[in-house]
């Protein structure tokens, strides 16, 4: 990635992809019995890729765009939760993946947990601490969805890296 224009455009495309994936995910019917806040986290694939292969600031920017989009489409509460969750999880993923050399599975699971933790904190501040009842379930579901995201990245990364090098 040589020219900066190309770089910005690439980040923009990634941000758009993240927004589209999170929109797609919201279209899925809610699974009965699942606590509020439990999500597949499709768009985390994009944030993780950005944190690992593009850089820290582009990755944070993508999370911000995603949060901003949640503000616009789903209101203040959802916006705050998405922004806080996105930024915190991107930070953790970048830290684990780039600085501490964790594997994809571990970094991705930690990212999902960080996302849940930040969301819970915001939900707790904005609504009531009753949401914390679900915390243990969210930890398990978050780890599971993190592992899925990690596996998906394991498949997607090699070809993407080739693409990027061109």
């Amino acid at each position: 990635m040589k020219s900066s224009a190309k770089f910005v455009a690439f980040t923009g495309i990634l941000a758009a992809l993240a927004v589209v994936l999170s929109l797609l995910e919201n279209l899925l019917p809610p699974v009965p019995g699942m606590p509020p806040g439990a999500k597949l986290g499709l768009s985390n694939i994009v944030s993780m890729y950005a944190a690992g292969c593009v850089g820290f600031f582009p990755a944070m920017a993508i999370s911000l765009v995603k949060g901003l989009f949640a503000f616009l489409t789903r209101g203040i509460t959802a916006g705050l939760m998405s922004t806080a969750g996105g930024l915190f999880s991107t930070l953790i993923v970048w830290l684990l993946l780039k600085k501490l050399r964790f594997g994809l599975l571990g970094a991705s699971a930690a990212g999902a947990l960080a996302h849940n933790a930040a969301q819970l904190m915001i939900a707790c501040l904005l609504t009531s601490s009753a949401v914390l009842y679900y915390a243990p379930i969210l930890v398990l579901l978050g780890t599971a969805s993190g592992i899925l995201t990690g596996l998906a990245l394991g498949v997607l990364l090699p070809p993407l890296e080739k693409l990027q090098r061109r």
Partner: peptide, 18 residues
């Protein structure tokens, strides 16, 4: 093929924490 291995032993730390 990738700079990022799928799994490293230290990942277990995360799962243990979870």
């Amino acid at each position: 093929s990738s700079r990022f291995p799928l799994f490293r032993k230290r990942d277990l730390l995360i799962f243990l924490l979870a």
